[in-house]
């Protein structure tokens, strides 16, 4: 499933044993696809000597800071962006 720019997406809130590049603070959070990057080899398998294939599409996802940190002190418009691989994303309602 490919997510177009502007799509509201939720980052899967699942435990993952071993190396992965999805930071804990965005797991379970809903944001917006800001950019669709290229596809890259999967670091979760590459880290253990495999070739990382199939490659996974990478997205820049933007989150409202106040959605990520409930007591965020800055402006309501402030945003935090993270690059998240497609297999960590699901479409949000």
């Amino acid at each position: 499933m490919t997510y177009r720019v502007g799509t509201r997406v939720r980052v899967a809130d699942r435990p993952h044993e071993g190396h992965h590049r999805t930071p804990g603070y965005v797991k379970g959070k809903t944001g917006r696809v800001e950019r669709m990057h290229a596809s890259f080899t999967n670091p979760e398998t590459r880290a253990y000597g495999a070739n990382g294939l199939p490659a996974q599409r990478l997205y820049l996802v933007g989150f409202a800071q106040r959605d990520v940190w409930p007591d965020y002190r800055g402006d309501a418009r402030d945003r935090i962006y993270a690059d998240v691989f497609e297999h960590w994303l699901e479409e949000a309602e």
Binding site: P23, P43, G74, Y81, A82, D83, F85
Partner: peptide, 15 residues
């Protein structure tokens, strides 16, 4: 200023 939006980019992967 409060009128400036702050965007933090966390380079979590290949970019």
């Amino acid at each position: 200023g409060d009128d400036v939006e702050v965007r933090v980019l966390d380079s979590t992967a290949d970019i």
